[in-house]
Design a protein around this nucleic acid. Structure first.
Lengths: 237, 237
DNA sequence: ACTGGACTATTGGCTAGGCCACTGATCCAT
DNA sequence: ATGGATCAGTGGCCTAGCCAATAGTCCAGT
C-alpha cells in the first residue's frame, strides 16, 4: 500500500536531525520564558533528561546554538545566553529559502553604493577600461536581442574590482548567487536591459570623473530600479 | 580599587573546545586537498580515528560545520561538501593581509550606514528599548573606568537587529571577529569611549526619531571617527 | 529483458555510562 | 584581611554499542 506515487512534488521530506529539534525546543523555551542575556540554561544532565535525549545529543544542539551565537558554553560553569536569539529566524529563513528579495536589495544597496564611491576614488585606468568593456559587451548583447545577464554581472564585477577592497569584493562574491537570481528577474522585464544599460553608463561616467558622490547616487538609483521589479513580483504573490 | 585594570590586556586566554580544533583541521584539510562541492569526507569512524578523537567529538565538529553550511551530513550515505565554506574565506582572505584595517572601515561604513537607515525606518519599540539599554550599559561601563567594549558591541548588535534584515545581520556576523579587533583598538585610545558614546547617542536619537538620513549620517560619522584611530595606528607601524 | 523485492555492507544517529578538568563558593590557617 | 585548600557542581570528552538509512547487488516473478 504505497499510494505515494502522486502527481505532486515528491516533497523530499525534510529529515530533521534530533539535535535540530532540540535546538529549536531550547530557543522556543528561551523565548517563551523571556530569558535574557546572562541567564543560564539548566545543567546539561538535567536538561537532557528533561528533553528526553542523551547528553551527547544535547551537546550537539548546544554546539549548534553556540556556532550561531545564541549561547556560550562555559566549562565548569554552565551555559549562558548571549541575548541574540533572533537566530532562529535566520536559520528558518535560509532553510526555507523564503523570499529574501527585499533583503537582497538592502544589502546590494549597502555594498554596491559604497563600492561605487570607492571605485570613483581608487579606480585606475585599467579598471576604467574594464568597466567600459563590459558596457560595450552589454550594448552588443542587447543589440542581439539578448537580456545581457552576463554583461550585467561583468559590469558589477568590474566596478567591484575598481573599488580595490578585498573584503568588499569577497563579501559580494558571497552573496553573488542571491544577486544573480534578482538580476535575472529584473532583466527579464521588457525594456529593462536598456534602462539598466543607461544606469550603468551613469555609474561609469561618475567613476570616470572620479566623483564619489555621483557614483554612489547613480548606483543607488540603479539598485532602486531593480527593487521596483522585485517589489512588483512580491505583490503578485 | 581592583588593580586588575592595569598595564597589559589580561588576555582572557581563549580556550578552544576540541570540536573547534577538529572543525578547523577539517576545513584546512579540505582546502589543502582542494576538495570541491560534492566531494565526500571519510567515514566518521575512520576520520575520528585519524584525527585521534572520539566519534562524538567529531560529530560535534560536523554539526558545527553543518550549521555554518560547509558540509551536509546524510544519514547512511556520508558527509558531502557544499560549495560554500565561505565564512572562513572572507576572514582568512583578510587575515592574511597586514593592513586590513582600512578595508574593515570600508565595509563597516557600507553595511552599518545602511543598517542605521533601515533601523530608523523599521525599528519597533522593543528594538529601541534594546538600543537604549546598551547605551546605559556603556555609560555605566565607562563610569567604572572600563573601555566598554562589550557594551559597544551590544549597541551595534541592537541596531543591526532593529534593521530587521537577516541577510545584513548574517553578513555583519561574518565579519564580526574582524570588527571586534578594530573596536578594541579604537576604544583603547584615551577619551575614546566617551566620544564613542556620544556618537552612539546621536545614532540612537535619529533612530528614535525614525529619521533614516540622520541615522545614516550619524553612523557614517561614527565609523569615520573609528577610522581616524585606525589609520593613526597604521602609520605608527 | 525487465521489474520489483530481499539481502547486505557501509555509514551516520543516538544512547548509556563513566572519568577527567574546570569553576566558584566556602572554609580555614596565616 | 589575605591566601590557600577543599569540595560540590558543571561541562568536556571518551568508550562501547545498537539502531536506522542508504545504495548496491542479486534473484525471483512477470
Amino acid at each position: 500500500m504505497t499510494p505515494k506515487a502522486s502527481a505532486e512534488l515528491p516533497a523530499p521530506l525534510a529529515r530533521t536531525r534530533l539535535y535540530e529539534q532540540v535546538a529549536e525546543q531550547i530557543t522556543t523555551w528561551i523565548r517563551q520564558n523571556g530569558l535574557k542575556a546572562g541567564d543560564r540554561l539548566p545543567p546539561e544532565r538535567e536538561l537532557a533528561a528533561r528533553l528526553g535525549v542523551s547528553r551527547a545529543t544535547l551537546s550537539q544542539a548546544l554546539v549548534a546554538l553556540e556556532v550561531v551565537g545564541v549561547v556560550v558554553v562555559r566549562h565548569g560553569d554552565g551555559t549562558v545566553l548571549t541575548g541574540k536569539h533572533s537566530e532562529s529566524r535566520i536559520v528558518e529563513a535560509i532553510r526555507a529559502h523564503a523570499d529574501r528579495m527585499p533583503e537582497i536589495i538592502d544589502i546590494r544597496d549597502a555594498l554596491e553604493t559604497k563600492i561605487a564611491a570607492l571605485a570613483a576614488q581608487r579606480r585606475t585606468d585599467d579598471d576604467l577600461a574594464a568597466i567600459d568593456a563590459s558596457l560595450d559587451a552589454m550594448a552588443a548583447s542587447i543589440e542581439h536581442g539578448d537580456r545581457g545577464v552576463d554583461a550585467d554581472e561583468q559590469f558589477h564585477a568590474a566596478v567591484t574590482a575598481a573599488a580595490h577592497s578585498d573584503l568588499l569584493a569577497q563579501t559580494m562574491r558571497e552573496i553573488a548567487s542571491l544577486i544573480r537570481e534578482s538580476r535575472i528577474e529584473s532583466l527579464s522585464q521588457p525594456g529593462r536591459p536598456r534602462n539598466s544599460l543607461t544606469g550603468h553608463r551613469a555609474i561609469a561616467d561618475a567613476i570616470r570623473a572620479r566623483d564619489p558622490e555621483a557614483a554612489a547616487a547613480a548606483m543607488h538609483a540603479h539598485v532602486e530600479m531593480v527593487s521596483d521589479v522585485a517589489l512588483l513580483r512580491e505583490e503578485e504573490r
